[in-house]
Design a protein around this nucleic acid. Sequence first.
DNA 1: GACAAATGTGTGCAGTGCATACATGATAGG
DNA 2: CCTATCATGTATGCACTGCACACATTTGTC
Lengths: 206, 206
Amino acid sequence: MPRASAPYHHGDLRAACLQAARELLEEDGSAALSLRAVARRAGVSATAPYRHYADRDALVSAVAAQGYRELAEHLAAAHPSPESPEDLAAVAVAYVRFALDHPALFRVMFAEPCDPDSEERVSATIAIWEYVCGIVRSVFPHADPDALSTTIWAFVHGLAFLHLDGKLDASTPDVVAAKVRAAVRALFVASPVMSQTAPPSPAPGT
Amino acid sequence: MPRASAPYHHGDLRAACLQAARELLEEDGSAALSLRAVARRAGVSATAPYRHYADRDALVSAVAAQGYRELAEHLAAAHPSPESPEDLAAVAVAYVRFALDHPALFRVMFAEPCDPDSEERVSATIAIWEYVCGIVRSVFPHADPDALSTTIWAFVHGLAFLHLDGKLDASTPDVVAAKVRAAVRALFVASPVMSQTAPPSPAPGT
DNA sequence: GACAAATGTGTGCAGTGCATACATGATAGG
DNA sequence: CCTATCATGTATGCACTGCACACATTTGTC
């Protein structure tokens, strides 16, 4: 028993702070994520975390980056290499589920103004973009991958947020999954109707 | 000279707080939206706003509700009664533009956990939902209005957030408008491609 | 004109981010 | 092995916040 009371040096305070921040976020929402609370939970003085994170935003960015990585894993786990619209729907469900299972984390990831300075943060979002692009390329080989990736990410992302904000019924996982699948289906059914709407008449004004 | 110095009673402090809150939000972001700052700007003691708003969240909710109303007006102004996909694209552009023109407000509206208690808040969001439904019904008379409304709102909403978060190039209004239109177009082109997706040729590498 | 309700003020407390000065102990040089 | 250095953690202090409480002022209403 070499360490009667806590040793002066923590060992890996950086990681401990991240972990503590993550826990506080999941337990009591982003309002509870204060540097002091993090320090308390890590069993360390109030200002110690500043040795590892320049300010509160830096810590939040680190948490967000970890969230991006977990989201990517979660999506990949839902379907490693989606090739059909059905597969894509499964991934969409996983995306929304992640948001609903980690609401505060998801909000931190997307809902806070983020300076593009955080290296790991941008690289983590690029990874997600690449993942979506890959899916689009294999499911819709004939489409413009960039535009369609934008469309699909936006769609799924918006779906997640609307559920998160209580704009759509999110009472049970099954209800959500069904709703998401229905929305995906609706997405792929939109166009035929369109072909009878854009008429022979010349483009309207502008 | 009836009022040498400010009169004891403000007159309409409730509205003044809302106004001040809105200004602070636009000027310095949501972090600057403190009740004390609001009170200062309204030229009133720090605790006076509590007579009109139970707590900070109540004020924020009021600001959000006003934001919803303005968003609805903004959309209606973009196109009073959209009837074609082109019209719909114009509305989508307006939606995204609103988010980019009022980033902090938009975040307050959607990015904060919102208790569904705020009467005016829920009624304001219902109004937006009705508006979207109306569009969908007239543009896609043959589709399931509920599912497709969800799809389209989610899509446009996600588009707004991704631009807001710097995930998509938002350097100039024109770039954004073009991107949004391209995404809308991609949305309506998705399905034909889909029908040929489970193809004879095996998926390319990866 | 008295009185009650609505509105605004003042003070105080617990909590926050962060700057600054100081303490400790791991590690490398002699 | 002893010591100097320096990353790491501590202590203290300031300006700020939300909010509870007791108090002051004004505005109706009988």
